[in-house]
Design a protein around this nucleic acid. Sequence first.
DNA 1: AATGAATGAGCTTTCATTCAT
DNA 2: AATGAATGAAAGCTCATTCAT
Lengths: 218, 218, 218, 218
Amino acid sequence: MPPVDPAARERTDKHDLILDAAIEVFAEKGFHHARISDIARRAGVADGTIYLYFRNKDDVLLTIFEEKMGILIAGVQAALEGVDDPLQKVRIFARYHFRQVEDHRALAEVLQIELRLSNKFLKEYRPEKLWEYLNVFANIVREGQERGVVRAELDPFVLMWAFFGALDEIAMQWVLAKRRDKFSLEATADTVADVFIRGMAEGGSIAGLPATVPHTVE
Amino acid sequence: MPPVDPAARERTDKHDLILDAAIEVFAEKGFHHARISDIARRAGVADGTIYLYFRNKDDVLLTIFEEKMGILIAGVQAALEGVDDPLQKVRIFARYHFRQVEDHRALAEVLQIELRLSNKFLKEYRPEKLWEYLNVFANIVREGQERGVVRAELDPFVLMWAFFGALDEIAMQWVLAKRRDKFSLEATADTVADVFIRGMAEGGSIAGLPATVPHTVE
Amino acid sequence: MPPVDPAARERTDKHDLILDAAIEVFAEKGFHHARISDIARRAGVADGTIYLYFRNKDDVLLTIFEEKMGILIAGVQAALEGVDDPLQKVRIFARYHFRQVEDHRALAEVLQIELRLSNKFLKEYRPEKLWEYLNVFANIVREGQERGVVRAELDPFVLMWAFFGALDEIAMQWVLAKRRDKFSLEATADTVADVFIRGMAEGGSIAGLPATVPHTVE
Amino acid sequence: MPPVDPAARERTDKHDLILDAAIEVFAEKGFHHARISDIARRAGVADGTIYLYFRNKDDVLLTIFEEKMGILIAGVQAALEGVDDPLQKVRIFARYHFRQVEDHRALAEVLQIELRLSNKFLKEYRPEKLWEYLNVFANIVREGQERGVVRAELDPFVLMWAFFGALDEIAMQWVLAKRRDKFSLEATADTVADVFIRGMAEGGSIAGLPATVPHTVE
DNA sequence: AATGAATGAGCTTTCATTCAT
DNA sequence: AATGAATGAAAGCTCATTCAT
């Protein structure tokens, strides 16, 4: 175990402090309406201090994306560890994604809504981390195709986007819903996974489906 | 045939002129970076003229959304007319959606990216028109369930969001792609429809699927 | 009786129509917040029509001043006709002034408040008409001094301003008062006149005072 | 003696710096024609700095009024201290008022002309400070009535407005006069005071008047 | 004469960013 | 490293005025 460098420790603390404050503020007011001074106040630091840790306001949002997506990628890989069946992995992925959304609502709002906000992030910026995350799914598809349980004619990229799009849209609806308990993301995860698994599966080999299909809410 | 009222004609023209200019500018620079003067210049009118037709900048975006979604809804209903099989309707919907995106790239960019821009549109504003459009799909699902060709346990709302999310994400990737010919939206439409149809279908009754699923159609 | 020229008649009508509308609008919203289109709408004419009768917005206010003050001057001179005692004239003047304010509240508001509004009117513009009106009072003072009923050492100009200032301030308070019936301008006129008459009078010759001094309201 | 807090000192300085600059600019160009950037340039600060000290342009004018009237009120009370005779106090009040106008010409212009500028200040805003100032005079009247030296039938409110109106109008004429030395405000103060004292006084008890009223004092 | 759609100059205010302390 | 007062660029919107009809 390496000795903790107090300075680095302190630095890390303030870096994270600002980032967490920014996530909350961005989620509440939106990126454009969030002021640097709002973030600074929430983080308990001076406005100028933010510029010691981040290049500018955009960089704060970018860093949230990069760092949090990194954690998300590590998490989904850990969640898939030990699962053999590619179709089962699809279900795990969906459940994991929605659990993250549920557990980190503010972060989810920022990543889903605010990140789509500006050309900065969707035209100039290449969200490599997002692709890395999505690629985990594409690899599941490829693995399924190699094993013959996923229809070979399906384009992994198209499936990847379709699947992520489905998860993302549902997550957004959940985030935007006034009554947050309106529907259970967990049950929804299984519905979506179920549809995709059946839709992807080769012939009758839909091992990924449970005997009893968990159905919809409401 | 009624005589054309020149004043009304002119008025309509300028309204549309500004709206079309706004779509282009919003698509290029994004809503927040687009200046009223940019739109005015593009439309060939003075800045102030925009305020004769729209309350403010937000109203321009909102009107684009309302009017264009209205056309979209009418179009998809027309496209579905005469189609009987609900599962086949799913395919028609997907193809229609992507054709619109292909034919109106700038508009698609605005609707997809910029409308997600601010809390204004996703938190306060209720996009009734979007829901109306999505409801066309939900009704297809319900119809299929009544006929016994779509599994009864699937929630039409969840399916609706999942399907729209899938279409939307793919459309966004297409819009954002530097090389626009990178992939064919038309072929993709069939892939996505195919996966959803199989995923939704009751038992073996997947009438909506062709005997051989072509990866690239046409 | 001269034959009425229909064109001139029409012209006069519209001129006055606009002016009367302007007085109301200026009184309600203030000169700066009043829009030409407000006046046009109130007058029932098009915006552009106003510019056929007046050079610009300032000119509308100016014309109100010039024309209405002209009427005021004629009126006060008529009111003073037949009155011989200079001190009595002071009382007549005060009563006349307040009666005009009472009878033309909107106009009073405009003349008192809005005319003081801009440097336009109080720095560059020389309100000759106002001076003409005030000069009626100065002449009363001079006449009184010649007759020996007003103390010779009093500067007519200073008295004139003091008297008008007193009337004007009280009128403004009355105009601004929420409850318009809060105090009677008529009784107040006598109080003010009384104080000035006593203050101006030579020795005991205060013929202008009634046997019973009408006293204050409330 | 407490140590001077440099921050507070600096802050106070900038607040006053801006206010003083604003008084000059308002006096020169009028409130409406004065731009924030004019004030900023005059004060030697950036435009934005003004908004660190004041809510908006209106607030600058309002603050000038509140703060300067506060000083005026304190000053007139100090000037009246030690004077016993109510009628004499009237003279002191007039002299004090005109001395302030003479010593702070720009401020006087702003208070007199610009404060009457808009409904903002005369309809919505209740100038409590002005009333407080005027009330000093009303109290002199009441005191005089209690002592039996001022006629009991006179309404202190009417007298207060009349007196202030007289002072204010003369001050305005002085402020607006091109040749500032045209007339002496100091001599005029005595003339006005003289007229009011005689006009207000009970019977022959006009102790406030010198045996020989000088037309020009000092 | 009358209209009213169109013009475009003008200005307050915000807030990301800097930098002297 | 931290502060936070100061900066100043940037742009949405209003409305007096014009002018083609």
